[in-house]
Amino acid sequence: MTTLLNVEDLIKNFGGLTAVSDVNMHLNDDELVALIGPNGAGKTTLFNLLTGVIVPSSGSITFRGSDGLIPLNGMKAYKIANLGMARTFQNIRLFKELTVLDNVLIAMTANYRENFVQSVFRLPKFYKTEARIRQEAIELLKIFDMQDDLDQLAKNLPYGTQRRLEIVRGLATKPKILFLDEPAAGMNPEETADLTRLIQQVQHDFHITVLLIEHDMSLVMNLASRIYVLDHGSLLAEGTPKEIQNNDAVIKAYLGEEA
């Protein structure tokens, strides 16, 4: 078990607000980790930092690439994605006016080549490449039972399906780490159960690392092998589901708010 991603003393300030403060964490190969915490704790901000959408105020993020450690601080988001990090968004950000198939094909952009002349003059090689990646995309969509929606516009999908398409799109980039930001938000219990099974299956079959933000505790406790708890930007606790369930600070933070 080796560390794939290592985060040290990560800080993000927005003006006077410290949204992420001194976070230390790591992700290992092939594990499913959860990140929990009350609303506004800084979970999404942490995702944004790790995927390069925003730049940290200080601290370091290191990724173990195929040839050595790579510092990710200040690297452009698309380069980070191409190293093998994919994500979904809490407020769904699909390519709304495009079809389901195009959404997935677009995510595969970095994983195949078509040169300008081939595509513009429609040489046989172009059709071959297109057929191959199209097949790949359909295989992925099949896992999530969306193979019949290929030509639907993303914006016309039901809410739960949109969330699943975001996951497919993330997977299509062939990631080593997949960041899921509240993938079950707005789903009914049945859909949530379905999704839980899928996430588990995908993590297992593709041998990828998943970092999951989720509010549904039963989902988290079932899935995660480790849990990080974030509160007011700082890590409150870290451990196995059992440890977290019995952690006083966590109980206080969660129950204290309601009491």
Binding site: Y78, A81, L94, F95, K96, V120
Partner: peptide, 26 residues
């Protein structure tokens, strides 16, 4: 033909949502 190829789809993604496109490695 450019629009209906890898590059064109990438351009469409940019039109639709730059941040999402960026995060998908484009």
């Amino acid at each position: 033909n450019f629009i209906h190829s890898r590059g064109g789809r990438a351009a469409l993604a940019v039109r639709e949502d730059e941040i999402a496109a960026d995060s998908m490695g484009i």
